[in-house]
Simulated assay, not measured.
Amino acid sequence: MKNRVLILGGRGRIGSSVAADILTHTDAMVTITGRSEANNQNLGEKTEFLVLDLAEVEKLESIIASSNLVIHCAGPFHYRDANVLKLCIAAGVNYLDVSDHRSFTTKALKYHDAAVNAGVTAIVNTGIFPGISNSMVRHDVEQFDIAEKIHLSYLVAGSGGAGITVMRTTFLGLQNPFTAWVDGEWQTVKPYTKREDIVFPAPYGRGGVYWFDMPETLTLPAAFPTVKSVITKFGSIPDYYNHLTWIAAHIFPKFWIQSQMGVEFLSTVSHKMTNFTDQFSGIGVVVRSLRDVSRSHVTGNKDGKQSTYCSTLTHDNTAVATGYGTGTIAELILTGALNQPGVHTTESALPTHLFTQAMQSRGINISSHWV
């Protein structure tokens, strides 16, 4: 019998990119869900659509039980509990998600022992950042005898090809200070502070990046215990979007940016703006994991010397790249190449050789070198 994959929130740009990758690289039947009927959507022979709200627990339980793999793409994950993961563990069904907020990651990781006992492989944070970026870090850390510092920078052009949900995620990430592992201790950091100007590969050029609350800030220190600092910074091009986001984070009244109405207003306006400017800026993404005087980095001790290693990935569509990140792991689980019961982050679960093979099969070139 063919594998059956359930993609919750599969009609959005991220979910549909995940579905496209799975349909391309596996023979699985894919069920995508949304809260309303699909309009004029050509699903193809191996795809079906199901109206489903996550609050419909009995219906959700039934469709999970008939699946081999569940992929949770119904963000923003700031608002989500771990109920889908719990239902998958109870049904003995493997699980992935594209979660991108530490609050959700923390909730999910608490179910590690339950997933081990159920024989369920569950992997969170599987998109592009977090996701592919975490695997890039694992690759870079493995080059060292002792890795000491990780610095990740993400730059997105315009909307990145993603939908309004990703806009909501951005503004939700500005609401509160967060803790980051810096110089061997947890320190409080304000979002969208300490700008760094980094020269990214063509066609992006120089771009500004700022502290941003990402799950990697929390999970990478746990995965790589010798590391003393983990820095995650995010920025946009054109650069005026950075300045607008900075204003939202630091000038707007806190009660407004922390209200659902305020977030929805900013997300809607930003989505309309980026949809217009995408035709000029493109919708690509660039991720860097490296060390240079003021750039993102992995540094450490190699053969008794302090050394620096750099990895860079660029793609012309952020949503598609996210689909590659999640689709890669889905393919490996469905084929049996990845079987690791428990709840894991991408950097903990995915071996570098499997990651490298999967990226090559999708035409993704990751440039890596000593600096």
Rank of each mutant, 00 (worst) to 15 (best):
M1N: 14
N3F: 12
L6W: 05
G15S: 13
D21Q: 12
I22P: 09
T26W: 13
A28F: 15
V30N: 05
T31N: 14
T31G: 15
I32G: 04
S36I: 15
S36G: 02
N39W: 14
L50N: 10
I63D: 00
N68I: 02
C73Y: 03
G75I: 05
H78C: 03
R80M: 06
A91Q: 03
N94F: 00
N94A: 10
D97S: 13
K107L: 13
G127N: 10
F129P: 02
P130Q: 03
G131W: 02
E142A: 01
L152F: 12
L155T: 03
A157K: 09
G160W: 06
G163S: 10
T165G: 09
T169A: 15
Q175F: 01
W181N: 12
V182C: 14
V182I: 15
E185I: 10
V189Q: 08
Y192Q: 05
F200G: 08
Y204R: 15
G205R: 11
V209N: 14
T217M: 14
T226P: 01
V227E: 00
S229L: 02
S229P: 00
D239W: 14
F252L: 11
P253H: 10
P253I: 11
V263N: 02
F265N: 04
F265T: 06
F265C: 14
N275L: 15
Q279V: 01
L290M: 12
V293N: 11
V293Y: 11
R295W: 05
K302H: 11
E331S: 04
P341S: 05
V343P: 01
T346Y: 12
E347R: 07
L350A: 12
L350V: 13
T352R: 02
T352Q: 04
T356Q: 15
I364D: 09
